[in-house]
């Protein structure tokens, strides 16, 4: 008998080990970095170190505001280590949704059953996004727990805004992998698209940080749409919505091609 969302549940059942691993990774990163804030950034030594570094490096890493609690959480986790970790998970899951399944030959048999391609595409996308949402929520929860003990003083509004931006940013990498997988069925293309969009966003943002003449580059980087206006301190600012709009557009294009093309050739 058909119960609800069989493909969604199958995807979660097949990947829960990975999800548990990534959850542990996120927890480890947060618990390693955040409690260090009072000792590293709070006493002024960090400022001295930053001043001795080349300003280009500081701007590339997004460490310009690292001496404030929100700036520290942003620069270490949401903007760097968390972004890298969860993007890797996102691109892996996104590649697995269609392209990997197609290349290893399993997609053919699933599609020969009583499911439409649109349903398969939607349920597997939903499964990937739910896992990314989970990792984001884990991060939010840990930040809330450590906010006081680590003297971070992150406003709730700012935390939710930057977490939303973070979720959008990692989802964009996943969605790019899903959509390109849906269009081509090729693992390497899907992986390249997901990783490429993440690296592209980060690199263009870092270039835009270098000087005023290059600041216009921020208009073209999803990473800048998410973080350039400093949502963790300022709240709901910037172009966070644009990330979701681009992700949605990519998904639709991927679906339109996927439902029309030959599978497993």
């Amino acid at each position: 008998m058909t119960r609800v969302l069989p493909l969604f549940r199958r995807n979660l059942a097949d990947t829960w080990r990975g999800l548990a691993g990534w959850t542990a990774g996120i927890l480890a990163a947060l618990f390693l970095y955040l409690p260090l804030y009072p000792s590293i950034a709070g006493n002024g030594q960090m400022q001295d170190i930053l001043e001795s570094l080349p300003p280009e490096l500081v701007q590339t890493l997004g460490y310009d505001d690292i001496t404030s609690g929100p700036g520290y959480a942003q620069a270490t986790f949401f903007g760097l280590i968390g972004f890298v970790l969860v993007t890797i998970a996102a691109v892996g899951w996104g590649t697995g949704a269609i392209a990997n399944d197609e290349e290893n030959g399993q997609l053919e048999l699933t599609l020969a059953h009583g499911v439409t391609r649109g349903r398969l595409y939607a349920e597997r996308t939903a499964a990937v996004l739910v896992k990314l949402l989970w990792l984001t929520l884990v991060a939010v929860a840990v930040v809330l727990v450590l906010n006081e003990p680590a003297e971070l003083e992150i406003p709730l509004d700012g935390l939710l805004a930057t977490a939303t931006a973070f979720f959008g940013l990692v989802s964009l990498g996943a969605v790019a992998a899903i959509a390109v997988g849906g269009m081509t069925g090729r693992r390497s293309w899907a992986l390249g698209a997901g990783a490429g969009i993440a690296v592209y966003g980060y690199a263009v943002n870092a270039l835009g940080n270098q000087n005023e003449d290059l600041a216009w580059l921020h208009d073209w980087s999803p990473y800048s749409w998410a973080y350039a206006e400093d949502p963790i301190s300022e709240g709901w600012v910037g172009l966070i919505w644009l990330i979701f709009a681009v992700a949605a557009a990519l998904l639709v294009i991927g679906w339109l091609v996927f439902r029309r093309r030959d599978v497993a050739v």
Binding site: D14, N104, G105, Q106, E108, L109, A112, H113
Partner: peptide, 10 residues
């Protein structure tokens, strides 16, 4: 009911 020529299973 379909059995593919090259069967790949999870």
């Amino acid at each position: 009911g379909y059995l593919p020529g090259e069967l790949h299973l999870q």
